[in-house]
Nucleic acid binder design. Sequence first.
DNA 1: CCCTGCTCATAAGACCAGCTTATGCCCTCA
DNA 2: TGAGGGCATAAGCTGGTCTTATGAGCAGGG
Lengths: 307, 307
Amino acid sequence: MSRAEGQRERTESLAHRVPDLAALELLLAVARLGSLGAAAREVGITQPAASSRLRSMERQLGVALVDRSPRGSRLTDAGALVTDWARRVVEAAAAFDAGARALRDRRDSRLRVAASMTIAEYLLPGWLLALHAERPDTAVSLLAGNSAKVAELLLAGEADLGFVEGLNVPTGLDSTVIAHDRLIVVTAPGHPWARRRRPLTAAELASTPLILRERGSGTRQVLDAALGGLARPLIELSSTTAVKASAVSGAGPSVLSELAVGEELSLRRLVSIPVEGVPLRRALRAVWPTGHRPTGPARELLSLTRA
Amino acid sequence: MSRAEGQRERTESLAHRVPDLAALELLLAVARLGSLGAAAREVGITQPAASSRLRSMERQLGVALVDRSPRGSRLTDAGALVTDWARRVVEAAAAFDAGARALRDRRDSRLRVAASMTIAEYLLPGWLLALHAERPDTAVSLLAGNSAKVAELLLAGEADLGFVEGLNVPTGLDSTVIAHDRLIVVTAPGHPWARRRRPLTAAELASTPLILRERGSGTRQVLDAALGGLARPLIELSSTTAVKASAVSGAGPSVLSELAVGEELSLRRLVSIPVEGVPLRRALRAVWPTGHRPTGPARELLSLTRA
DNA sequence: CCCTGCTCATAAGACCAGCTTATGCCCTCA
DNA sequence: TGAGGGCATAAGCTGGTCTTATGAGCAGGG
């Protein structure tokens, strides 16, 4: 999929076919404000620059995006679709930015967050985005690790607020449940399980070799507990992405957080297999050193995660 | 949220803080191949260019992403996180590209697809991506409209395959169910419904004014049918994005496709309210003119959507 | 009735960023 | 110890994209 495509895709890679972020943001501004000039002002460039950027974007895509008139500009039908896709790219970029910003401010920060991998990857960037919208001056740092690492950082005073997804709260920490996450059994659509009519039983799941994260990961922990310590690995991989890729390629069934496979499910690269009698729901918790109730930006972030 | 932020964010907009797509793709290639030079070759630039790009990306983010050694390069811990966020940006960009490519090839195309808005926005770009991976030479065009429009295009021979989300299949068309979608009731987290302990009843839902798409939209149609033609609009808006924005801002409850609100739910900008006794599940169907069973690329796309 | 103010487009010139080519250093393995 | 792969640095060119300056179309008010 990668090297072969890399060869064939001499059609010039994505970056040559997709407008850059600045252009996408401009398009969103035009969509919202209904005028090239106003959009130009908002993104901090001159009107002719905006005009030219938009024009070259239309040339690049081969589609007219806005109807210009002496009274303003409005999206064409195609423009409305493109704008929605652009919005999703920009949102992903904003999440990237929020995460990177947190990493950058690691040293000299006011709010230091420690989080487990799944939460750091899939949820925190969005929360940090929201926090940044309300408190733009808060410098946030982010450290990722397993539950033990999070606890260690909090107890050593090297982090102000933690997020974990395990079953048990590490000792010395207070916690509150901020959300729930479900582990789901997934396979490639071609797998026999995808055509089952009855839910999987715990025994079947326990007796089937699965594609799993390594022992010690939060996901693996919950699964082992739910099955009574019995999950049988078919392969053990060290990142969620690798597990997903392996499952998509049809290597076997896997058990993953629903947070991690949203896109794969909606594109039907993976399908979810119902299971009965296995408690795969797990709490996501915010944690902090016992007694040190979160204050200031930590408290703000905490409240954002809950409502 | 927008204009005020536009002012305050003179910290330079996203495009200045997020590396461009070419750099993100390079990072992914480095992560996968474990070498700057190999990654450079894959993306079609020279090794010094890759080195410089990567370096400026690290400078921009203020974080070391890869450990260089004379034996190759590996991601740092921070680099692994950043790579995951980068992957999501690149995936969004790939979806953008797949959609835009389909729009561009509108005229001289071999496979012409007509789809309802929700499907065109949220699902088709992914499917087209998969199709492109398997059949890179297929030129696909995309037309979006409501169910009636889709039917019209198919019957006029101006489209080869359609996708609709309504309840009833337009006459003259054959169809197959390719997936299911659920409408869900959502509110901002601060709304009283977010603290309910019991599911909402049909009567409560029917008697509460809701933020809705305009009449005639697939979503509205299903909701009206489920409630017996009784949905009461609080506001009627003409795009899903506008409805979401309005709901997030706390204007009131709304009913939306779960496809449309995935991100809002996981960021808890919106919360889902359980409902009982209202059949809000709806089928997504592929449709084609009666008798003209999809063949060639249409058949390929169809099978991709199902497995 | 025309003037003012909004819209967008075009033209010409300056500037900056990123690429390529050419080199050098470091490490490992045979 | 020499060959090869890995990365960094330097110099020069190329190209895109911004800015300023200007023109043209349409609306609404004095």
